[in-house]
Nucleic acid binder design. Structure first.
Length: 259
DNA sequence: ATTTTCAAT
């Protein structure tokens, strides 16, 4: 059993997994499911089950279970936020896609990634692009995201002391992701041909690289770099309030005890 | 390629 529901991470676990220096041979995914109203309906974290399942699969199963046993009202809207220590592989991206497809427009998903999993692997790149096109809000974690993740899943009363090199690595990751978004995959037909007959999710890729597969009416895709810059000029970045400044509603949403 | 990568020793 590698999933933990409604449980906080230890500082050690956070540092072991959400750093960009160590060679980490496991994956940690923190997750939360929220409705229109606080508090979170479901939250926790999961590790991969070595040689058995990736962490995303385990989290999705839990989310599926919750949504299945809690029939959605017609106006319900869920938001799922994931903080993943590695980006999802092709198979996990396909599972995320299926999960969202089954829940149609009732679920939006934010996927915050600490570092790339096999960044130069074509499968991983193209499947991330597909997820983005499908409406998943994908972001490489920056310093604020690490702080938010720590605040939400470790301890709101302790301030994260990020490792020295974290910030510069965040900037590199963001550049990599922007590059990926603008990258054209011209050799795609060749790729399909080469991979034909192999046991891989070719249909997932081939069906979704063609235009017209955007899931949501609204454009929820992550803005591109130039769009982001104009957006960031318009509004200041959201900062989590200090614990003492948080009102009751906010504390409730963050599932914190009251004084 | 800055970039190993959801273990195995």
């Amino acid at each position: 059993m590698t999933i933990f529901i409604r449980r906080f991470l230890s500082e050690e676990e956070f540092d072991d997994n959400f750093n960009t220096v160590d060679l980490v041979k496991k994956t940690l995914v923190c997750f939360s499911l929220e409705d229109k109203k606080p508090p979170w309906k479901l939250w926790g974290y999961a590790y991969n089950d070595p040689k058995v399942e990736h962490a995303e699969t385990i989290v999705l199963r839990e989310l599926k279970k919750y949504l299945g046993s809690n029939p959605t009202k017609k106006d319900s809207q869920y938001k799922i936020t994931l903080y993943a220590s590695y980006s999802p592989c092709l198979t996990c991206c396909e599972e995320i896609y299926k999960f969202l497809n089954n829940n149609n427009e009732k679920v939006i998903m934010k996927l915050n990634i600490s570092r790339f999993y096999n960044f130069h692997d074509y499968d991983n790149k193209i499947s991330l692009k597909i997820l983005r096109k499908y409406g998943v809000q994908i972001k490489m974690m920056d310093l604020e995201d690490y702080k938010a993740c720590f605040y939400l899943f470790v301890d709101p009363n302790v301030e994260l002391q990020p490792r020295e090199e974290l910030d510069v690595q965040c900037q590199r990751n963001e550049i990599d992701l922007d590059r990926l978004w603008s990258e054209e995959f011209q050799v795609f037909e060749d790729y399909l041909l080469r991979r034909k007959g192999q046991n891989s999710a070719i249909s997932f890729i081939s069906e979704h690289l063609s235009p017209g597969h955007d899931r949501l009416q609204k454009d929820l895709t992550t803005p591109k770099k130039d769009e982001q810059e104009t957006a960031s000029q318009a509004k200041t970045p959201v900062k989590l309030p200090q614990i003492k400044d948080m009102d009751r509603k906010e504390r409730f949403k963050r599932k914190l005890p009251f004084d």
